[in-house]
């Protein structure tokens, strides 16, 4: 039976919301694990990761079917193109969250390091940027896009500062080298999650305005306010 186009699009949108919701859980879980004093259990996060992978494939299949059978154009075409890209970004966010949890296991004296380098603040911002990216897709709200760009810049600055400080400590205290290195990798993962959230915002902007802003600076993007 032929499914009406509108129904296919709604199905795609709902699947993206579902995968985005799972990735949001992953990010929350990963940051909570990083900030927690005890060593993490990663069974739940692994199960969620499997669900994300399955939904990612499902989204590709829905998009492929729509391209082949419905030949979408204009706003429909932009939505489907963005949906495929956003799904990839979300899947990567899931993977990175999983990696954060794995690396966290290897950090000794974790809590002390986290307190010293302000990583709790980075974690808060990571959760926030991820929520905003998902909201931005669901509501197609351009105002959120500007906020995501600003938040990403702030996360980059904070992780960069923290990494410099960690390296400085590692230079003076060789006992911190192993944990410090793992923590740097975790920070890099968090930074990548933030980048993927920003990419989602860029695809939402493309979906709304038919303009590709991948390599533009925030100040140069029409309709968006704020400074990078």
């Amino acid at each position: 039976m032929t499914i009406p186009f509108e129904v296919e699009l709604e199905k795609l949108k709902n699947t993206i919301i579902k995968i985005a919701d799972l990735a949001e859980q992953q990010v929350t879980e990963a940051t909570a694990t990083l900030l927690a004093e005890s060593k993490p259990e990663n069974k739940v996060i692994k199960r969620t990761e499997d669900k994300i992978d399955k939904l990612d494939v499902k989204i590709d299949q829905i998009c492929q079917k729509i391209f082949a059978l419905k030949q979408p154009v204009a706003s429909d075409l932009r939505f489907i193109m963005s949906a495929m890209q956003i799904s990839n970004e979300i899947e990567r966010i899931g993977d990175l969250s999983m990696s954060v949890v794995k690396k966290t296991k290897k950090i000794n004296d974790k809590h002390d390091l986290i307190k010293r380098f302000g990583i709790d603040e980075v974690c808060k911002q990571i959760v926030a940027i991820n929520q905003k990216a998902n909201e931005c897709f669901i509501s197609r709200n351009e105002n959120t896009i500007g906020e995501i760009f600003i938040l990403n810049k702030s996360i980059k600055n904070k992780t960069s500062e923290a990494i410099h400080e960690i390296i400085a400590v590692m230079k003076t205290n060789s006992k911190t080298v192993v944990s410090g290195t793992h923590l740097i990798i975790v920070l890099k993962h968090l930074e990548r999650i933030s980048e993927h959230c920003t990419n989602i915002a860029e695809y939402v902007y493309f979906m709304i305005n038919a303009k590709i802003i991948k390599h533009d600076k925030l100040g140069d993007i029409e309709g968006l306010e704020g400074e990078e």
Partner: peptide, 8 residues
């Protein structure tokens, strides 16, 4: 045509 079929 590109405009009509991408963003009319």
């Amino acid at each position: 045509t590109k405009t009509i079929f991408t963003k009319p």
